[in-house]
Design a protein around this nucleic acid. Sequence first.
DNA 1: GAGTGGTCTAGACCACTAA
DNA 2: TAGTGGTCTAGACCACTCT
Lengths: 244, 244
Amino acid sequence: MNIDKNSLIPFYLQIEQQLTEKISSHEIKPGDPIPTEAALCEIYGVSRMTARKAVDYLVRQGRVARFRGRGTFVIDTSLEQKTVLPLDRHFTASDIARELNQTLENRVVEFRREKADAETAALLKLPVGTPVYFMIRLRLLDNKPFVYEKSWMLSEPFPDLTREHLNHSKYAYLEAQGYTPSGSSKQISAELPANTVRQALDLSRDEPILHARSVAYFTDGSPFEVADIYYNQRYYRFSLEARC
Amino acid sequence: MNIDKNSLIPFYLQIEQQLTEKISSHEIKPGDPIPTEAALCEIYGVSRMTARKAVDYLVRQGRVARFRGRGTFVIDTSLEQKTVLPLDRHFTASDIARELNQTLENRVVEFRREKADAETAALLKLPVGTPVYFMIRLRLLDNKPFVYEKSWMLSEPFPDLTREHLNHSKYAYLEAQGYTPSGSSKQISAELPANTVRQALDLSRDEPILHARSVAYFTDGSPFEVADIYYNQRYYRFSLEARC
DNA sequence: GAGTGGTCTAGACCACTAA
DNA sequence: TAGTGGTCTAGACCACTCT
């Protein structure tokens, strides 16, 4: 219930630890408020900026949520009912929407041709500077954004790709052209997103999200698309099946 | 090069945006320092706390790294040579270590029996209160921690599990008992870890990490282990294969 | 010694919420 | 209207790095 002002550990960390302890031990229960910032200043004898910094870390860890004018409350994770989406299957527009009985929307944010940079070219096995499609799509289920996707795709055997195709289904277009996507390799990381991504996915400034660097292949193993995919874990969970 | 003090957007966000722009456009190149905090105060006419807060977000986004006494530098991601580990396969001690020609260590942090709580019991299909093993392991490759793992495992057909087994290979022990693990379902999320996890994995206070909630099954489909697995993305990347 | 980032203070004004 | 969190200031002392 007190901090050691001679400790090498910063005040805000000591306060964070004590609040964490009280939350873990259910001394402060899910849904309950933690002490107000003014109260923390009193209790621990620190300034408000220091008290706030302690709470900042709890917010960023997803333990508490702040509400201006109301207070700061312990998050009740048991109440979270999130839809589970598979990371190891491609989201085929119609499939998922039909299964969940929800509307699906693909919002094309950007769509143009550009020349492949070194990294993209290497992944797509093209010479640097080859024209490719560049597109950004925001995908929504029931008007809630679940994926923000920046993608570079071959333009060579697909000269007539349009925004219309992207609004509907990119993979359906490829199939119609006689090319069958078979899968992708993804590298997954946890990141605090840049502001453009954060705003598109309607997230707070403190929510880390899942990011996948994806390289998609046709059935013959040749790569046709490189993408940066950002997954919104506010409304969804993402799953995968692992083997031994 | 200036901020709008009448804007509704906080000063620190405006500054962050401008620095982001300069980094993206390579006006400030990877490896180069961004302006010092004192300089930012001058340039934008703000106090140091405000300037710092702008830089805080860049740090948390992994765009820059601060070094006390030296400065704050744009991170050069192209220099990152990280080992790729598969998320969709179980890390079998010997396999990975052998393949990479690195040493593997399993450090048992905690090991005891406890009674299954409601959630664990449900996932393991046991009555609440059934005794289970609880263990925390830190796993290191070449002395660098790559996984922190909290696990609850059946104790019923395995009465004689010891710390020794955990130091060596948990799955080898199960196999020796005639039970073959076949795979697991995982739910993946991005999180800022709690301090215990952060310290064990030797991470900064601002690095989000990958977290998996895993339920592992035997070949007959019965669950034998629930685990919270935290993946260190400082030295490693994590990959998976997706199908269409 | 000069310059860097890390922490901290004691105020302030504001927007929002609830009684 | 009182209380909450959101932002901001203008200082301060410190540990560390580089020269």
